[in-house]
Simulated assay, not measured.
Amino acid sequence: MVALLAITLLRSSHEGDTTFQLAAESDFVALPDITVPSMLTAWLMVLVCAVALGESVRRMVAHVRQPMWLPIVFALAWMTGFLSWAAADGRIRVVSLFAGAVALAVPLVFGALGGVLGERAGVVNIAIEGQLLFGAFAAAITASLTGSPWAGLVAAMVAGALIALILGLFAITYFVDQVIVGVVLNVLVVGLTNFLFRQVLTPNSDSLNAPVGFERMPIPVLGDIPLVGPILFRQTALVYVLYAVVAIVAYALYRTRWGLRVRAVGEHPKAADTVGIKVNLTRYRTILLAGAIAGMGGAYYTLVAVNQFNREMTGGAGYIALAAVIFGKWDPIRATLAALLFGFATNLQGVLSAIGSPVPSQFMLMLPYLVTIFAVAGLVGRSRPPAADGVPYRQQ
């Protein structure tokens, strides 16, 4: 990635200044704009990235644990350098850029959390895409019939848990290959929702596909914090639920007896069985919870983003969420940050188009998937999944 940015700067030099607008028009306290020389800033960020990369390599050779701040510094420096070059003589609205990234990352985070829980328990959850899509479908119909977005959210959780139950039935009880089952479930959900959309929703769109969505709920005081407030605290209730879910999953997985049992059946199920832990029951319970969380991500599409269901509207988000699980090394906080990175890459293509960036539109369209490939290819070799991930357990 450092070499790619450096080659880009060498091949296409854009002299001028780049302005970073840090404040939104509705901010109570307006931060001043920051104007920097485009090429000089870009090359300084390349230097920072190179230093961060060197430190990462040094720690890897010395077998020292990589701190979380190191990839964050690298990512921020790389993005700052790239934006400085791409927006020469232009203006980057930082609040809009990151607020859009958070909005696009919400279903990815829900899906990634579901993937982390499932794989920590030893079940590979390829069916995240199906859980997102079926959750979106159930949320649209239920919210349309009841007039309540909260009822739609509950229905999405049930739909996601139902897909997880089918996954568990074949993968845990009947020992079918988990990857194959997940792929089949994704194809099944796509076909089923396409059929129902055409036969049921389209003829009755006013009554069955007009859900009442969540409204924006700015949090007093927190929403007025410069820069951070407009990005994080002027969101819908579903986004605030996401904040709570991330914190609860991270705490429960590492700080509770339940989390210890989940990690035990994912790492060494036979040892867990010998101390009285019901391995398969624990796996069932965990993947049902994981499916419910992923289903909440599907509800975001129909209750916040679009306010109606469309065919295949998730657009492969489940697979990107699965990449975030691997990128995040099966850790809920790291997976959340990875999902935010992918959301940022997706939003960046629209921002660069709006400012007339010289970056080709084709590159911007494939940018999120390039980030996904680099992330997985760069870290999969050094990431260790749970030892029993994908291995069915046959009780003696």
Rank of each mutant, 00 (worst) to 15 (best):
P71R: 03
L117A: 12
R263G: 13
P392G: 13
K329P: 00
R91Q: 14
S12M: 04
L289W: 11
A324H: 00
V190I: 14
F137Q: 02
M39G: 03
G350D: 09
A305T: 10
C49F: 00
T18H: 01
P332I: 13
A272S: 09
T302K: 04
A24Q: 13
V64Y: 03
V221H: 10
L40N: 09
P203K: 05
N307L: 15
P220L: 07
V391L: 14
G276A: 12
G115P: 03
F197N: 14
Y284S: 07
S12Y: 04
P269T: 12
L227A: 13
F20N: 11
L165Y: 12
G350E: 04
F363Q: 05
D177F: 08
V183C: 07
V380C: 08
G182E: 09
G16C: 08
W85M: 04
D331M: 12
L53D: 07
D27I: 00
G350C: 03
I219K: 07
A387R: 15
G135S: 09
F342Y: 04
T372G: 10
L169F: 15
A112W: 04
R283Y: 10
F74R: 02
L281V: 08
L132V: 06
R261P: 00
M313A: 12
F197I: 03
F374A: 14
R58V: 04
P218V: 05
V158P: 00
G115I: 11
Q178T: 15
A161H: 15
R261A: 13
L188P: 03
R394Q: 14
